[in-house]
Write a protein that binds this DNA or RNA. Structure first.
Ligand SMILES: [Mn+2]
Ligand SMILES: [Mn+2]
Ligand SMILES: [Zn+2]
Ligand SMILES: [Zn+2]
Lengths: 150, 150
DNA sequence: AATCAAATGCAATATTATTGCATTTATAAT
DNA sequence: ATTATAAATGCAATAATATTGCATTTGATT
């Protein structure tokens, strides 16, 4: 998960997208990249409480537009953000992987390399993209539960 | 779509779930049942502008808990509500159908009878439910676009 | 070192959602 | 029918989430 990246990777990333390398942006990037799950907007906000709320919104929007991160709403409608995997670009998202929402810890997992089988829609529907959601219990929470009941 | 139901159907429905038959509730039911697509919270609110905002929230929550309607977030994170199809009950939702979000008219379609093929998750993930989302252009909007360009 | 566009921070406002409490209403019991 | 009661509604207050405009700061370029 979450392969380790250093400061310079992030600076390059911003460079590539013609975004200025600012401290708030680098901090947001390193926080998101360090986790194996998506990060919720509330979490980002409380961890980065010294960054202005509005700035955070603008950073997230910019990153999303550039195809650096993607947004996913969890079961409660809360916005979560995760790094994009390679093939996303400016206004071109291809995060057609499964999003697993743990009902216990609320974490959202991006499960890549899970090619969803082709689905055919009724006549007339022109599809641009799919996302598959699943909810249930994640490995960590399953283990914890097992430990307790033992 | 949206099979016609009369007042008495709705009253029975409320009865069945031990909910009082009140005017706000009946109006919400008939509005939602009359449409072939889901209804967004903002739409409900503006159409039912004489019903108190808080009452609306409580009605929607109650209906959702009873398994009368289900909530689905569209691409913008806006809450949309649609009638449940038969097999949902108190705290027991089985709306595992495809939700199609038209990027033009923003409507959310519940496409039932679209059995999604089984997906197997990585080791450790215990799944309770799936939802498949698709986005693109709905039949109506496709037709309109075709008409214009002709 | 100077310049300029981009990014940030702050204030104001908008939208969406929740909580507590007083009042009204639907239902059931009398 | 009348009354009793719990449920539902409406209203006020507050919280949480999001957007806009503008003054100030900062990163990149010359
Ligand atoms: Mn993802
Ligand atoms: Mn649905
Ligand atoms: Zn979990
Ligand atoms: Zn449409």
């Amino acid at each position: 998960m979450a392969q380790t990246r250093n400061k310079f990777d992030f600076e390059d990333l911003l460079d590539k997208h013609h975004l200025k390398k600012t401290s708030p942006r680098l901090r947001v990037l390193s926080m998101m990249a360090s986790k194996s799950t998506a990060t919720s907007q509330p979490d980002l906000e409380s961890v980065m409480n010294d960054i202005d709320r509005v700035t955070l919104y603008r950073i997230l929007n910019a990153f999303e537009e550039k195809g650096i991160i993607h947004k996913v709403f969890d079961l409660n409608g809360t916005a979560n953000y995760a790094m994009c995997s390679s093939n996303c670009g400016e206004h071109h998202h291809h995060d057609e992987h499964l999003h697993f929402n743990c009902t216990v810890c609320k974490n959202v997992y991006c499960l890549d390399d899970l090619h969803l089988p082709p689905v055919s829609l009724p006549e007339g529907f022109k599809t641009e993209g799919f996302t598959l959601y699943a909810n249930g219990t994640c490995p960590k929470c399953t283990k914890k539960a097992a430990a307790k009941s033992a």
